[in-house]
Amino acid sequence: MNLKGSQAEQQAAEYLQQQGLTIITRNWACRAGEIDLIAKDGAQLVFVEVRMRRASRFGGAAASITAAKQAKLLATAQYYLQSIKSTPACRFDAICIDDQAITWLKNCISA
């Protein structure tokens, strides 16, 4: 991961913590892919994709979460759930950073 990516993930983690979430792990990886942040929001497990764009000429950060990326996130989350041997209530969120604006998209990917 490049420096900008790690800075975006740090910014996203801090933002989510300010909103009351607890960060469980960062950059959880398996053969299916990687999940940027895994957090707890009350009893709910939250898989978070962090996307950053400096300019929106290609649709901005949210537009960069393609169907293929969503499928990869779902597969990776399944591996994570198998690794913890639990199936808590889950959701998929995205933190989109466009220039300096943060947008939190809750439950933006359906399993």
Rank of each mutant, 00 (worst) to 15 (best):
I38Q: 03
I97P: 00
L3F: 09
L3C: 03
F58K: 08
C96Q: 02
A62C: 09
R26M: 10
G33V: 08
M1H: 12
K69W: 07
A94P: 01
I97L: 12
E9P: 03
R31A: 08
G42A: 04
M52V: 12
C108M: 07
K69Q: 14
G60R: 01
A111E: 07
R54H: 11
S56M: 14
L3R: 11
I84W: 07
Y15A: 05
K40M: 15
A89V: 10
S86V: 01
Q17C: 10
D99T: 10
L74V: 15
T25L: 06
A61N: 05
Q44C: 13
Y79N: 07
F47N: 01
C30W: 02
A12S: 12
D99V: 03
R26L: 01
A67T: 13
Q10V: 05
L81N: 01
T25Y: 03
K69C: 10
L81W: 06
G42C: 05
K69F: 11
D99R: 12
T76A: 12
A67N: 11
I24H: 06
Y15L: 13
A75E: 14
K106S: 11
A32D: 13
E49I: 09
S83C: 03
C96P: 04
F58W: 07
V46C: 05
I97F: 07
M52A: 12
L16E: 05
K85G: 08
A55K: 11
Q7C: 11
T103S: 14
G5V: 00
M1I: 10
T76C: 12
Q100K: 10
A101G: 00
C96G: 03
R53S: 13
A29L: 03
C90T: 15
G60L: 04
L74M: 13
L21Y: 03
Q10L: 15
A101H: 11
V50H: 05
A101P: 00
A77H: 01
D36W: 04
E49V: 07
Q18R: 08
A94L: 11
